[in-house]
């Protein structure tokens, strides 16, 4: 398949799913009512539903999915490993720790933006620690080791908070939040996440040529004029901005960053640079589809988005492993 066709096809898929996400929900609105409310402002309740509930939710779906897909493709390209995922550098667990602290201390209850802001603070703190730990030279090994150490530590602290939580309701709230969801989000969340995510997209989008060259290994890439230390810094900042903002507004949504690049790699001739835009669109499509599915499958039960992406993602991933084995790669 030609690359242009693929990108156009994925773009069209995202548009269709975006429209579907706007039109599907528990409030039974007809197609005409929905569109009338969204574009012309007809019908007070319908306008509220469309503009304050469904539109931000669909927008967040696109933003989060694109962020996760793009970060996953960038991480896999940089580490030259199809099992890499955005959570590997420890930013998502640190952002989750910040959010959990906001829930546990009651800050989140007294001040609505405390949770996402604390999560962002956790992400920023973890990036500083990561840069300190990973050292000045551009090696990928020290980055993985530092990321694993940070992830483990942030995970342990999150467990400690849960462990010491005095009341079971707070603990339950934390656990449900950690499952990841786009429900009940508003435009405040969109505006909070957008600057960070947009910064992350711009940073990661510049990495294509460097990631292509890394196909030949770090030494050969450096000799091709790629400045590895700079590439790694841009990668860390880009992934952290995308993932930190994502966790802040939606909690932990796994498997999108792992599965989408893997799924699309054969369609772009395995070129890491071309995989970046394809994965961003693919991630947006997968997340929108999953977020529609949670509303359709169990409308009354508040099925969490992160649960569904993992439920769908894991078997998909197993299928890919099986296919890879059969092709003897």
């Amino acid at each position: 398949m030609r690359y242009g066709t693929l990108i156009a096809g994925l773009g069209a898929l995202v548009l269709v799913l975006f429209a579907a996400s706007l039109l599907i929900g528990p409030a039974a609105l007809g197609l005409g009512d929905s569109l009338g409310a969204l574009f012309a402002g007809r019908g007070e309740a319908a306008v509220l539903v469309m503009r304050e509930i469904r539109l931000p939710r669909a927008l967040l779906g696109v933003m989060l999915g694109a962020s996760l897909g793009l970060s996953g493709a960038a991480m896999q390209g940089y580490l030259r490993n199809p099992l890499a995922e955005p959570g590997l550098i420890g930013v998502s667990s640190s952002a989750a720790l910040g959010a959990v602290l906001a829930l546990q201390t009651g800050l989140a209850a007294s001040f609505a933006l405390a949770l996402p802001l604390m999560a962002l603070a956790g992400a920023v703190l973890s990036v500083l620690l990561l840069l300190l730990l990973a050292g000045p030279r551009g090696s990928s090994l020290t980055l993985i080791l530092a990321g694993i150490a940070l992830s483990a530590f942030a995970g342990a602290l999150t467990s400690l908070v849960l462990n010491l939580s005095p009341n079971p309701y707070a603990a339950a709230e934390i656990i449900f939040w950690m499952l990841g969801s786009l429900g009940d989000r508003s435009f405040t969340h969109v505006w909070l996440a957008l600057p960070f995510m947009a910064l992350g997209w711009v940073l990661l989008a510049t990495l294509g040529r460097g990631l292509d060259a890394l196909t030949l290994g770090e030494d050969a890439a450096a000799a091709l004029g790629i400045r590895l230390a700079r590439l790694r810094l841009v990668l860390i900042l880009g992934v952290a901005a995308c993932v930190g903002a994502g966790v802040a507004v939606a909690g932990a949504v796994g498997f999108v960053g792992l599965v989408v690049p893997h799924l699309l790699r054969p369609l772009v001739g395995a070129r890491p640079g071309r995989l970046l835009p394809a994965s961003a669109l693919g991630g947006a499509a997968m997340l929108l589809a999953a977020d529609i599915a949670v509303r359709v499958i169990a409308p009354g039960r508040d099925l969490k988005l992160g649960v569904l992406t993992a439920l769908v993602g894991a078997p998909l991933f197993l299928h890919l492993i099986y296919k890879t084995r059969r092709e003897g790669l």
């Binding site: 292509d212 060259a213 030949l216 030494d219 091709l224 004029g225």
Partner: peptide, 28 residues
Amino acid sequence: ARQAAWLPQMRDIAWPVSVETLVALGRT
């Protein structure tokens, strides 16, 4: 990179790209 090309001993090809794509990386 325009003055000197380097062929490392380690024969790294990380992704299943086509031969033409791989050789074209030399044009980076």
